[in-house]
Design a protein around this nucleic acid. Structure first.
Lengths: 224, 224
DNA sequence: TCCCGTTTTGGAGCAGTGCTCCAAGCGGTG
DNA sequence: CACCGCTTGGAGCACTGCTCCAAAACGGGA
């Protein structure tokens, strides 16, 4: 409270004054450009033209910074979900928002599945729970259903991150890559995976993700 | 081939001769005792009373070592799944095997969701696919259904790892911890999470996980 | 038996990481 | 003007994965 007052009173120290927001912003840019491994304190100090001490004065540690960056990305991805009225459609919209966010910011998917108790996941879970309730899921089952949806979404978010780690920029190359490996598996031990390998290159992750959501939703309707 | 012959010919170099298996074995012990962060090259050299060079002569790098350790743990967890006849029950058994493995070896859950194209996950996916086929899921839908189950399982595996990272040893403390945080959330923004917080401490992860599997299976039967 | 090429070993050292600590600078207040 | 607290930048520490190399251990051929 008082902090805000004094801060407003005294003008900017400088045009490029350091602040938590500016640091998080820079972190997101670095992460988007070079992936998780690119975000180092040194890279931050270089981009912001400052020292490590200045950064640690605004941010507790690396983990908090990653959590804040993820929170920002998820929050902005979830803004237009609230306008969806139909509960079933709202759940799909929530899931897709997370998918798209972790698809274009894979590092966020990684952080999301790594530390799910942080604000970013809270928002997702709250949205899922709210719409499950609207869907008419009984009180007792809401937790279980929300957990199923949430874990599935987190799982896919982690996969998006994993794929980006394997091939940072080429989205389709990784599928061909994995397909090639699976095609050479022992036919006796892995007949199914060899068959799946043929479908891998031409399948679309996003629609398959949505099929999974619909599968769970279909299961939920059976317990209504 | 020839390698095996010569290897069999010459006896053990020493009683405590270094080998890839012995290294992986030691790695698993370190990981189980101290979690992911405890496995360092230095810790390995100390436990095996050797140097870094010797280890890197048998193992390419840290990641490969982690993958091998995860492969071992998952493989041994999946051994008794094959005996289950009923496809629906076999899928539940596969899922539970992974859950239990990543519950007692959280680091394996982390690695599993981080690099899912490795042997460990292949085994899981193959088992799921095989039993989905036996269940009568049509060819076209097998991939989608397997993906849904797999992603859900990987998601929960990641959660098990996250929980262990938060509270390495006390399984129930983490739930009370999170519940306490969620109980203090803004009632206007997070009404559902506050209500879930009351159910959190007394819920059982394992059975909830299985409810999720059953939910997906119920959804799958609707598309049969 | 000895010798010599191959495999295996252990550790010094490098480049990089997150983070702490401190001396200096700045700006507002008395 | 002098002071004091917030802010800044960087030197330095403890740690990481990993490379490189000299030496030891080994075992087949002479």
């Amino acid at each position: 409270m008082e902090l805000m007052v004094t801060r407003t009173k005294r003008g900017e120290r400088r045009a490029d004054a350091l602040s938590r927001e500016r640091i998080v912003e820079a972190a997101i840019e670095i992460l988007d450009a070079g992936g998780e491994s690119a975000l180092t304190i040194r890279a931050l100090t270089a981009r912001l033209a400052t020292g490590t001490g200045a950064i640690y004065h605004h941010v507790a540690n690396m983990n908090e910074l990653l959590a804040a960056a993820t929170g920002d990305v998820i929050a902005s991805a979830m803004t237009d979900v609230v306008s969806v009225a139909d509960p079933r459609e709202a759940i799909r919209a929530t899931a897709l928002a997370v998918f798209d966010a972790t698809d274009s910011h894979p590092w966020a998917g990684s952080q999301l599945s790594r530390e799910p108790w942080q604000p970013a996941f809270l928002q997702i879970a709250e949205s899922l729970g709210r719409h499950l309730q609207a869907l008419g899921v009984p009180q007792r089952a809401q937790f279980d259903c929300g957990s199923a949806l949430g874990n599935y979404i987190l799982g896919v978010a982690g996969q998006n991150a994993a794929r980006a780690r394997l091939h940072p920029h080429d989205r389709s190359a990784v599928l061909e890559d994995i397909a090639a490996r699976w095609a050479q598996l022992d036919p006796d031990k892995y007949p199914i995976m060899r068959q799946v390998a043929t479908q891998l290159p031409e399948h679309d992750d996003r629609t398959q993700f949505l099929v999974g959501i619909d599968l769970i939703l279909a299961g939920i309707t059976t317990v209504l």
